[in-house]
């Protein structure tokens, strides 16, 4: 069940803030998702939320929004659409194994502990065709190994 008010609040907005949307669709004209040749319309997503209609997991923005804030900077009201999408993703639990591992790590240690995240998500990484990128990933693996440390237990906020 979608909780529109909760999602909008998570983004630091109030429902009234969305009512200022002019329907100009400037956001849609600059949206990065269009570069993927996928039609995306942030204005429609806002309108559906405002009307209390369900936005589901298959919405192109829920699936592909990159948090680029191009829409926000072009919008006459600077509406932070990616923050709303992030709230939606959390509400619809759409995170990948990797994203869950990051959040788990923060919950346990207060920080993202990369060795844990990579181990936890290793199957996902292999399945998603990452193996062929391994050579180019080596620089990052070496950085992780060079800076290896026991997880720094920070009190969870």
């Amino acid at each position: 069940m979608q909780q529109t008010d909760y999602i909008i609040e998570l983004a630091g907005h109030k429902k009234e803030d969305l009512s200022v949307c002019l329907g100009c669709r400037i956001c849609a004209s600059v949206c990065t998702v269009n570069d993927l040749e996928i039609n995306a319309n942030p204005q429609e997503l806002l309108m559906n939320l405002f009307l209390g209609l369900n936005v589901d997991k298959d919405d192109p923005l829920v699936r592909f929004c990159t948090n680029c804030y191009r829409c926000t900077s072009a919008c006459p009201w600077q509406i932070r659409i990616p923050d709303i999408v992030r709230g939606l993703r959390e509400n619809l639990s759409t995170g990948s194994v990797f994203e869950h591992a990051i959040i788990e790590s923060i919950n346990i240690w207060g920080r993202m502990y990369e060795p844990y995240v990579f181990l936890r998500a290793s199957l996902f990484v292999l399945k998603d065709g990452w193996a062929r990128h391994m050579f180019r990933m080596m620089e990052y693996v070496i950085n992780i190994v060079r800076s290896i440390h026991v997880p720094h237990k920070v009190k969870r906020i």
């Binding site: 609040e9 998570l10 983004a11 948090n67 992030r86 959390e90 959040i103 207060g110 009190k155 906020i157």
Partner: peptide, 12 residues
Amino acid sequence: DWNCCGALEYGG
């Protein structure tokens, strides 16, 4: 003792 800032994973 800084915490992770939540990067882009945590919501609002």
